[in-house]
């Protein structure tokens, strides 16, 4: 039997395959199609202090092998999440990673404070949503000092595993990742979506009202893979890799490039069975090649 178990911070997972934030709702949406108990972890849609309505239409735009989105963090808000969504997820035998997002350092601090007593496995700090901007039009994940401030504040209240989700839209992701590591993060999730845009030629206007939107899907895989490689070279803490993963081979590439765990995002829309198939193929691969533990393969790329 191949051993798929992994550990990230204090969080023990039965396998390293997650579903990425924003692509799997609060888990319940997919429960009729996917056996949630098989997943390594479910990362929830990012939660904000108050419910958020999100952006106007259009929110989605198909591109060559990819998908641009501009959802704008529509979510039920902290209160409803704790009262309704979290208890549902707790019924399952899977890792629960709660993603949080804020517009100010203070909001992240309040979210961490409110969630510290709740029962789940890890907190993912989303400081990289391209569709919600702070006044300075800079994301927390685009400045090592801002990233550090957020993590320090969250750490003060939240003692269990903290994952920081970074944007690829920076010159040196290693620099930001190092700042997060130093500030007390247990793991780095790489990457959120790439900045992109689309044009409505009939009207001569941008498709999206914000002009910029986030690109995901197989189109970004080579780009994201390199960001994961760069990040894993820069830090000692585990990296969770994602971007266009559609099958086990995609996932294995990420693992070889330094990812301790992987997440399926937009792939869930095409085929909700992808994460479960990856887990099955991963176990088969370990067994057939007598590799024992999946953790042995992490960062094993021969350069």
């Amino acid at each position: 039997m191949g051993d798929l178990k992994i550990k990230i911070g204090d969080m023990q997972l039965k396998n390293p395959v997650m579903v990425a934030s924003g692509t799997f709702g609060y888990g319940e949406e997919y429960a009729q199609l996917v056996d949630l108990n098989k997943l390594g972890a479910i990362v929830t849609k990012s939660i904000t202090l108050k419910p958020r309505a999100g952006n106007n239409q259009p929110r989605l735009w198909e591109t060559a092998s990819g998908l641009l989105n501009s959802i704008g963090l529509q979510n039920v808000g902290l209160k409803t999440f704790i009262e309704e969504k979290l208890p549902y997820l707790q019924k399952y035998d899977t890792g629960i990673i709660v993603s949080i997002a804020g517009e100010t350092v203070d909001e992240y601090e309040k979210l961490a404070q409110a969630l510290k007593k709740e029962k789940f496995d890890a907190l993912e700090i989303n400081i990289s949503c391209p569709n919600v901007r702070t006044a300075k039009r800079m994301l927390f994940a685009q400045d090592p000092e801002l990233a550090r401030q957020v993590i320090r504040k969250v750490r003060r209240y939240y003692k269990k595993t903290v994952i920081v989700k970074l944007t690829p839209n920076v010159t040196d992701i290693g620099l930001i990742a190092k700042a997060c590591e130093k500030a007390g993060a247990d793991a780095i999730a790489v990457v959120n979506t790439f900045n992109g845009m689309a044009v409505d030629l009939k009207k001569g206007v941008p498709v999206f009202k914000n002009i910029v939107a986030g690109l995901c899907g197989p189109a970004i895989k080579p780009l994201a893979l390199y960001k994961v490689y760069e990040t894993s070279q820069a830090v000692r803490i585990p990296v969770i890799g994602m971007g266009g993963i559609m099958n086990f081979h995609d996932g294995l590439e990420y693992i070889l490039c330094g990812a301790s765990a992987i997440a399926v995002g937009a792939g869930n829309f095409i085929d909700p069975q992808i994460p479960v198939k990856i887990i099955k193929d991963m176990e088969l691969y370990l067994r057939e090649n007598h590799l024992g533990k999946i953790s042995r393969l992490v960062g094993s790329l021969k350069c």
Binding site: F24, L33, E62, L67
Partner: peptide, 12 residues
């Protein structure tokens, strides 16, 4: 236009 079709992605 839909992303997931099951209520998860908030795209539609």
């Amino acid at each position: 236009h839909m992303g997931c079709g099951v209520g998860a992605c908030m795209g539609c």
